[in-house]
Design a protein around this nucleic acid. Structure first.
Lengths: 339, 339
DNA sequence: CTGTTAGCGCCTTCAG
DNA sequence: CTGAAGGCGCTAACAG
């Protein structure tokens, strides 16, 4: 900046004014300074500005996994909103590991970001609460507000689980499997709750009507595929499989093909998320659609609002929707294979 | 930091030493300082450090579109490599718009990032070259080095196009369609070159054997679907469709279903990228696999190496691979519908 | 309208 | 091993 000032024959303060309040600089001087800037190849130093107290224009986001198409669409929503506000995004994956998450949060805080969006992996949220108390706004993404005083955006998982279960129950299914994973533990608990509600509503007992299977990370599709062996070894196997996301459903479709079970003739499959490819699978996947892009946008919205004077923390609840396609059908008549 | 120093009854320099060279501080003093740090809730100020000249630990990446599963996997490769080096990632999408890209690059430079990975949208690369000359290392991702003196990582697109075309030619197809998009213009040119090579190799004339269709952005799948009407209105329609990515192939499968054309019985389809869902489509997609994760990792590797003293720019060329699945089969016998 | 000045928080000499 | 001092680039306040 000093170089520019010298080249233009003015002081650094004037250069600063050209940058920040062009209106108060004489046109001729301004022109000279601007010319000098391009000649010298001047680039503002963000670190110095920030040190001087200018609010940062980068926002952080800690999500589960960038390569997961669900979070891909979520981050696109975040990015678009944040870009509109003239900000940039520092993105990272926590891979469901609290330690990774803590490290990322620390670095983001040290960088003095304007705020952080986080889909928390850690069981306890105290770290986030104190982070916020120290002055870095935090917005929970796909996690309920619970007792913490933070903004939050969630999609109603209980409703989602209920929609999925009600759908197959209405089709006559009486034995269901629910495939979940520690990668979506929090969501899975709530969706299970919704499934239980639907079962009770139909007069069914979860203890006998529902098989639960945990898919070990990290390979969700492969794990789901492999998990089916045990599920269908049962003398009275389920006729409908509910999955905690579409990737797992991908694995289920593959596994059922491997086991020679027809979809939806013998087994119905319901996914979750409605990622882009869900409609094109064989058969097209019945699934619970989450408003992914909106989820990201809404979270970014809340975060950007944090700096507004009258801001008050609140929770936004989005609603999932059942999308019926080809992977679900009426339950097959009970076969005589009862042992 | 001053607060910590006061709380621990030492000077700020000692606090700094505890942080940066713990070994040279007396254990007892160190303990006291560390205790004071947690008590006060001390957080290092990244801006101040950077201003002081400490090299930044954030690297920037400007890719085409975060929501695109291809770039999702690429960025995961970048992220993992960068995290290993203790760095963070500032990610953004350029949406194939040179203006957006320029803005992002500027902000990244102002932030003083350690380096920038870019899958360039701009036609000319001078901006990148001068960026690098000013001191921010730049690595081209999925773009050849050409005449610019920068590191670059690419996947051999000519080979990819040739593999796709050779495969269907060997299956007896003599009329091919190639669906490309301005979203992948650069890659498309090279893949077309590969297709031409394959056609020539088989003694076919591209002028008559190849139909080219441009899919207008932004909806690739929908655009591909819609584009088929014109393609198959031709009296001698193609029997094989080569797509510039798997998303387009998704749309093609949908469109062919809509038109009542069997895959692979009447028409063969080849995708590109081999994204996660490609294997699970109906039918499973024959496609050209790109080493996506490796592409990201290799690019990050090159970037991190830029700061090494003896570094010399170079280009890494990765090889794509043909993955044959269910969407391609022998060409149908010529029907009598010649007009 | 333009120049001067001080200081943001940290790290690194240099003395002690 | 610890303390004091200076400066990284920028901007806000004030003086000219």
């Amino acid at each position: 900046m000093r170089q520019v000032a010298e080249a233009a024959g003015v002081s650094t303060a004037t250069v600063s004014n050209v940058l920040n309040s062009p209106a108060i600089v004489a046109p001729e001087t301004r022109r000279r300074v601007e010319e000098a800037m391009t000649r010298v190849g001047f680039v503002r130093n963000g670190a110095a500005r920030q040190l001087r107290g200018i609010p940062s224009s980068v926002v952080g986001a800690v999500l589960l996994d960038l390569a997961n198409p669900f979070y891909g669409e979520v981050s696109r929503g975040v990015e678009d909103r944040v870009t509109e506000a003239g900000c940039m995004l520092m993105l990272c994956s926590n891979d469901a590991q609290a330690a990774k998450e803590a490290r990322h949060l620390q670095v983001l805080e040290e960088h003095g970001v304007r705020g952080i969006l986080v889909a928390p992996a850690a069981a306890r949220l105290d770290a986030l609460a104190s982070l916020a108390k120290r002055g870095t706004p935090v917005v929970l993404l796909d996690h309920p507000q619970e007792d913490i005083d933070l903004c939050a955006v969630t999609v109603d998982n209980v409703l989602g689980g209920r929609l999925a279960a009600q759908h197959v129950i209405e089709l006559g299914h009486r034995r269901l499997a629910f495939l979940h994973s520690s990668l979506g533990a929090r969501q899975s608990v709530q969706r299970r709750e919704g499934i239980h509600q639907a079962l009770h509503g139909a007069g069914l007992d979860p203890a006998t009507a529902l098989v639960e299977v945990d898919i070990p990370p990290p390979d969700v599709a492969g794990g789901a595929d492999a998990a089916l062996d045990a599920v269908f070894a049962d003398p009275r196997p389920p006729t409908a499989v509910l999955c905690f996301n579409d990737i797992a459903a991908l694995g289920v479709l593959r596994g059922l093909r491997r086991l020679g079970l027809a979809v939806p003739g013998e087994v119905s499959v319901v996914g979750y998320d409605d990622v882009q490819f869900a409609a094109e699978l064989a058969p097209a996947l019945t699934t619970i659609r989450q408003p992914k892009y909106e989820l990201g946008r809404a979270a970014a919205d809340l975060l950007l609002d944090e700096t507004r004077p009258g801001h008050r923390h609140h929770e936004v609840l989005l609603r999932p929707v059942l999308v019926v396609r080809g992977s679900t059908a009426a339950a097959p008549p009970p076969s005589g294979s009862a042992s």
